[in-house]
Amino acid sequence: MTEDSIKQITLKVQRYNPEQDSTPHFQEFLVPVSRGTTVLEGLLYIKENLDSTLTFRTSCRMAICGSCGMLINNYPHLACHTQIEEFHSDTLTIKPLPNLPILKDLVTDLIPFFNTHKSIKPYTIRHETEEMENPTAEFTQTPQELETFLQFTYCVKCGICISACPTSASDKLFLGPQALAQCYRYCADNRDEGWQERFLLVDTDHGVWHCHLAGACSEACPKGLDPALAIQLLKRRLTSQAIGLRKKQQSSPVASPITETKAKVPFPEFTAKES
C-alpha cells in the first residue's frame, strides 16, 4: 500500500452517553482510508487512536455474528461488511440502528428484539415428548424439504431488518420481519409440528397482517435473505388454513436406527506424519 492510496475521510459519528448527555450529538473524526477499509476498521481506528470512549459492538469482523449493525449514511449496514469507498464520499454519517433503544453511542438495546424472536418459539416442536426428551435418532429431511426454508436459517439476528422496516418504526408492538421470517422458517420445516401454536402468536393485531410489504427488510438484509417473502408465505399459510385449503404437512419420521456400519476408509499414506 503506497502513501498516495491513503486518503483522509471524515466519519461523523453519533455520540450519546445517557449519564452525561440529554440528547445525542455528532462528533467528527478524520480517519485514514485505503482500498478495502471497512467502516468497522474506521471505527476501530478511532477507538484505538483518537477516542477510546467511542462505544460500538463488534465481534467476528466477517458478517457472521451480526453485532455491528449500524446506520451508515442513513442506511442500515453491517459495519464489518461495508467498505468506506462504496459510498464515494469524503464524509460518512454513522448512527445507531433506528427502531431500537440506544444504550450508548452506537450500541442499541437488543433485548426487546431477542425477546420478540423468542416469543415465536424458534425451535423444533414435536408432539412425541419421549423422543424430544430422550432422542434416539435425528428426524429425516430430504434436500428438497430443506430447500423450502434454508435461506431463512442464515439469519444472524443483527436487527437490520427491524431498523429498515417502516412498520416497526410506526408500530412498537409489531413483531417485525426477523421474528415473522423465523416463524415461517420453523412452520415450513417438516421436522416441526408447532405451526398451530405459532399461528396463534402471529395472527394478532400487531402480527403478520401488519406487514405492508414495503420490502425494506429484504433489501437491507446483509445476508441476502428475503424476510418479506417469508412473511408473504406465512400469510398464505394462514389464509389457506383459515379457508380450509391447507395441505396437511406430513411430519418427518425419526430416522431408522443404523444397523450396519461401513468400515472406515483408512487415511491415505501422504497424510500420515513421519515420526
Binding site: 395472527d203 393485531d205 383459515a242
Partner: peptide, 9 residues
C-alpha cells in the same frame, strides 16, 4: 384466526 379472517375479508 380472527385477524386472518378480517384481512381475508
Amino acid at each position: 384466526m380472527r385477524n386472518t379472517y378480517l384481512r381475508l375479508m
